[in-house]
Each structure stands twice: as structure tokens, then as C-alpha cells.
């Protein structure tokens, strides 16, 4: 079986349409830079938002495809590295267990999507999550996937759980709570293995943490996740603490997320100006 599978070869049927982060970011439209009149008071995903149902459906589909890619990433880590020389057996066992969890999450997400009136593949699939799982160093995968990606999952599930709770949706609140518990475990696995494997290799640890920081910024999705009310998804500080993040690490992620939000707004302003210029010229 092939090792180190490329992101453009993931198995998907015709219902799915995949887009890269670059394509997604190239959209000159942005709700973030709308005028006061047009901009919602808050972008945070809450039932009080007029578009709450559709926004929740869209996010749920994002969770669904994210779970598929997380399953593929954890499964790949079991296969891509030689046991013993490249990755300890116990690490691969943890990744196998995670793959089992992710497969269950995919099934739960499909059921929740049906419940919310969404079809499989109804929204474009951003493949950025799997891209972070393509590193050739298992420690970098743990940092990028288990700590950054699964850390984002903690924030997303917390937001969705609260949404279900406030809306009175018993299934959404219950399912998100269960998946959230698994994600905390996955992040903790990543934190523990990162420390163990790099215990006597500070340079490798530094490199892994830098990679995590880069992935955290990418996973901030141009400001989709941050402490700001302009971001649909908040930062779940308490659950991150339970998952083994230090206070300093949480603060770093908060800073990175806010910077990503500001950079996205600046990028969108520039893209809109360029689009207007092109339109005027034509």
C-alpha cells in the first residue's frame, strides 16, 4: 500500500467538491469587512443570529468532512511510519484508536447532518485539514494534527454544543458533548507523545511547536476561530486546559487567531479593491 498519500488523491465520490485553502481565501467577498449597516452585530454562531440554522448546517458539514480527513490522517500515521524505528508501537496504537473514534464521529456527523437537513457534499470540502497530516515526521503530525487540528475541533464542538443547548436541540447538544470528550483525549495524546518523543531532542520539539503554530494560524481559517465576537467560533479555553495546553500556549493561540482575523480582513479589503479596479477597467 502506498505511503504518504497526497491530498489531491483522497477517495471521494461525485457528491464531493474539494477546494484548497488558497481557493477559499481567494474569494474577494467577505462578511467581515461589510459596512456597519450590512454587518451583523456578531458573527459568533448563536441561535439568536437570523441565519443561525443555515450557519449551523454549514459548520456541521465542515465538521463532517473534517472528521473524514482526521480519520484519514490518523490511519495514515499508523501506516506511513516503521514501528519502532520511526514511531513507537504504543503511539501507533493510539492513532489506531483515534481512527476508530474519528470513524464514529463521521457516522455521528452524517446523522446530525440529516437531522439538520443537509445532504452529504452539499458544501465544498476544504482539504486543509489533511494537508497538515502529510508531514514526513510523526512528531510534526502530532503537533499539527493532534494539537492544532484537534484543538480547533475542541473549539468547534464547544461552540456547537452551546448552540444545541441554547436552541434546545437535544441531539446536537448530546452528540457534540460526546465528540468533544474524544477530542480532548486526542489532544492530550498529542501533547503527551510530543513531550515523550522529544524529551531528549529539544531541537525537534522546537520544530514541532513551530509547525503547530503555523498550523494553528491556518486553522484559524482567516479569523473563523478567535476570542473576538467577529469570529463564528470561540476559543474553548477550559477544555484546552483539560487537554494539556498551558496558559501560555492558550494565550499564544488567542494572539495568533486574532492576527489571522485582522490579516483576513486586510486581505479581503485588498481583494475587493482589486476586483472593483478590474471591473472598472473592463
Amino acid at each position: 500500500m502506498r505511503k504518504f498519500f497526497p491530498v489531491d488523491s483522497l477517495a471521494r465520490d461525485s457528491r464531493f467538491n474539494q477546494i484548497t485553502m488558497k481557493q477559499s481565501q481567494a474569494d474577494p467577498r467577505s462578511a467581515l469587512i461589510a459596512t456597519e449597516e450590512k454587518r451583523p452585530k456578531t458573527n459568533r454562531l448563536q441561535p439568536s443570529r437570523a441565519d443561525a440554522s443555515d450557519a449551523a448546517r454549514s459548520l456541521m458539514h465542515g465538521i463532517f468532512v473534517g472528521e473524514i480527513q482526521a480519520l484519514e490522517g490518523a490511519g495514515r500515521t499508523c501506516h506511513d511510519f516503521e514501528t519502532g524505528t520511526e514511531a513507537p508501537f504504543a503511539l501507533k496504537l493510539d492513532m489506531a484508536r483515534q481512527a476508530w473514534d474519528e470513524a464514529r464521529h463521521v457516522e455521528i456527523s452524517v446523522k446530525l447532518s440529516e437531522w439538520m437537513g443537509t445532504e452529504i457534499g452539499q458544501y465544498a470540502e476544504n482539504t486543509v485539514l489533511f494537508e497538515a497530516a502529510c508531514s514526513t515526521d510523526p512528531v510534526l503530525r502530532l503537533a499539527g494534527v493532534n494539537r492544532a487540528l484537534e484543538g480547533l475541533a475542541i473549539d468547534v464542538f464547544t461552540t456547537m454544543k452551546e448552540f444545541g443547548d441554547i436552541a434546545g436541540d437535544p441531539f446536537l447538544e448530546f452528540c457534540e458533548d460526546w465528540m468533544l470528550a474524544d477530542e480532548v483525549t486526542h489532544v492530550k495524546m498529542g501533547s503527551d507523545w510530543l513531550r515523550r518523543i522529544t524529551e531528549n531532542d529539544p531541537e525537534r520539539r522546537k520544530k514541532a511547536l513551530e509547525f503547530q503554530s503555523v498550523v494553528d494560524k491556518i486553522f484559524s481559517f482567516g479569523g473563523t476561530r478567535s476570542d473576538s465576537q467577529e469570529s463564528p467560533i470561540g476559543l474553548a479555553r477550559r477544555f484546552r486546559e483539560l487537554a494539556g495546553f498551558s496558559d501560555d500556549e492558550v494565550e499564544d493561540i488567542a494572539d495568533v487567531s486574532l492576527r489571522a482575523l485582522e490579516e483576513r480582513k486586510a486581505f479581503a479589503r485588498q481583494a475587493q479593491a482589486e476586483a472593483v479596479e478590474q471591473f472598472s477597467a473592463s
Binding site: A52, S53, D54, R57, E114, M116, G117, A167, G168, D169
Partner: peptide, 16 residues
């Protein structure tokens, strides 16, 4: 149209 989508929206505003 997807009826379930609109039922979900209705439930969010009227209760589950």
C-alpha cells in the same frame, strides 16, 4: 427543496 432543512429551522425557532 429539502423539507428537513426547513423543519430544522422551524424547530430552532419554535422548539424541538
Amino acid at each position: 427543496v429539502n423539507q428537513q432543512r426547513w423543519k430544522y429551522n422551524f424547530r430552532n425557532r419554535h422548539g424541538f
